[in-house]
């Protein structure tokens, strides 16, 4: 498997650390209900098809990436920096 890092280009999967669904980007307000936090931390869909997840280019540029991919075809469709475009 290869991931197109927006900074480093196409790289071997072994350079990346996988870290679950991209919903982790949407941290709830501190005083949100326990249900909201529970959802944020623990509840995940298991889609057959499109999904977005987070990968850390740990052995490369150290950027956190949001990777859109297809769990059926394994196609990697789009990759963006989690921090956005600002450098």
């Amino acid at each position: 498997m290869r991931i197109e890092c927006p900074l480093c280009g196409s790289r071997d999967r072994r350079e990346f650390y996988y870290s679950g669904h991209a919903s982790a980007l949407e941290r709830p307000d501190p005083d949100s209900s326990a249900e909201v936090w529970d959802d944020y931390l623990h509840n995940r869909d298991n889609p057959a098809g499109l999904t977005e997840d987070l990968w850390h280019h740990e052995m490369g540029c150290s950027a956190w990436l949001v990777v859109q991919r297809d769990t059926v075809s394994h196609a990697v469709l789009a990759v963006r920096l989690a921090k956005g475009d600002q450098l």
């Binding site: 650390y17 870290s19 982790a24 980007l25 941290r27 987070l54 850390h56 740990e58 150290s62 950027a63 956190w64 920096l81 989690a82 921090k83 956005g84 600002q86």
Partner: peptide
């Protein structure tokens, strides 16, 4: 280190 990268880049860029 990975956690700090996450908190900074993903939560508080």
């Amino acid at each position: 280190m990975r956690h700090m990268d996450f908190v900074h880049q993903a939560l508080r860029p």
